[in-house]
Amino acid sequence: MKARVAVLLSGRGSNMAALLYAARLPDCPYELTLVTGDKPDAPGLALAEAEGVPVVRLPAYKPKDKTDFYAALSEALDRARVDCIALAGFMRILPADFIDRWAGRIVNIHPSLLPKYKGLDTHERALEAGDAVVGCSVHEVTAELDDGPVLGQIEVAVLPGDTPESLAARVLIAEHQLYPRTLAAFVMRERTPEAKLARVRQAAMALPGAEETVSHGMPCFRIEGGKMFCYFTHDHHGDGIIAMIVKTSGPDEQAQLIDQDPETYYRPAYFGTSGWVGVRLDSGDTDWDHVAARIELSWKLVAPRKLLGIREF
């Protein structure tokens, strides 16, 4: 399943278009499921609509009503079940509480080789400094302006006689090359089996007495050389599934979970009728808090009293 990306813009949307057309390639790991911004008449919104991308035209941003604007934006993002936000010429500084909620899931493209020339007027400042090379950067968005980890950059030469306008036009070509590739790598980094195993490992190893081992070719987690409470499976016996397998209270609970949510839960092969249940991690919108809670419930079913006491303390 492809990652669901929302693009926020303020103007013509050329970087949005670069992301959109790249998303139509068969091997692209993301899709645009929402385009919106701070100006309901932005040309980029009309382009997205013409290309069949869902668009939400929010009321025009006004500083005095910014709380209402970001509340409406958050509602639109939630309705679109967005995994990641890509800023593409969105000319507003996101509030800290919004960034906190989407931490690690917002990226931006900036027309300089960060950390140089954060903020505006990047090309003017580069020419004034006599730089021979400029460029563009894609970075994660944090509360500090243009200060998040850099994910990718492209250099662009400064030519004799360049003006801020001519330089901006050439850097924009580089932006259109950089953004789709970097966004694709960004959305994939937590979707690989290795990344998902790391998240399962983090939750399992946080529990008292937990240790990691291997059983039947699968990474798994047990209590101090004793009982297993979690397995991680990736294409085991060619089933094509990425999942974890955890204990339930028995076959009745296993059947109830599968009946209530068959897209998430399944009956794992080779575990018999013991009540172990598979929890799929390859749906694209994994609820990692729920995953951690299921791992802990499984751990509690096999943990000795002394460890249960430590956890409750």
Rank of each mutant, 00 (worst) to 15 (best):
K2G: 00
R4K: 11
A6K: 10
A6M: 02
G13C: 04
N15S: 10
A17T: 04
L20A: 12
L20F: 13
A22K: 12
A22H: 15
R24K: 14
L25G: 12
L25E: 14
T33Q: 14
V35D: 09
G37W: 04
G37C: 09
G37L: 12
D38N: 14
P40C: 04
D41Q: 13
P43R: 12
P43N: 13
L47F: 15
A48T: 02
E49I: 10
E51A: 15
P54S: 10
V55Y: 06
V55W: 07
L58A: 02
K62E: 15
P63H: 09
P63A: 08
K66E: 15
D68M: 10
A72C: 07
E75Q: 14
A76N: 05
A76P: 10
D78T: 12
D78R: 14
R79D: 04
R81C: 11
A86I: 00
L87C: 03
L87G: 01
A88L: 06
A88Q: 06
F90G: 03
M91K: 07
A96R: 01
D97W: 05
D100I: 01
W102Q: 07
A103Y: 04
I109V: 14
P111M: 06
P111G: 02
L114R: 00
L114Y: 02
P115Q: 06
G119H: 01
A126Y: 14
E128D: 13
A129S: 12
A129L: 13
G130Q: 15
A132L: 15
V134R: 14
V134P: 09
C136I: 13
S137E: 04
E140M: 09
V141H: 00
V141M: 01
E144R: 01
E144N: 02
E144C: 00
D147S: 02
E155Q: 15
L159G: 00
L159F: 08
G161C: 04
D162L: 05
P164Y: 11
L172W: 07
I173A: 08
Q177S: 08
R181H: 13
L183C: 08
A184W: 05
M188N: 11
R191W: 06
P193S: 02
A195Q: 03
L197D: 03
V200T: 03
R201Y: 01
Q202W: 05
A204C: 03
M205W: 06
M205T: 00
P208F: 10
P208S: 08
G209R: 02
G209T: 00
E212G: 02
V214F: 06
H216S: 14
G217I: 07
P219F: 05
P219D: 04
R222M: 13
I223C: 12
I223G: 10
E224R: 15
G225Q: 11
C230Y: 04
F232I: 02
H234P: 08
D235C: 11
H236N: 11
G238E: 05
I242H: 03
A255G: 10
Q256N: 04
S274N: 11
L281V: 01
L281H: 01
W288E: 01
A292L: 05
I295C: 04
L297R: 12
S298R: 05
W299Y: 10
A303N: 09
A303P: 12
K306D: 02
L307T: 04
I310A: 12
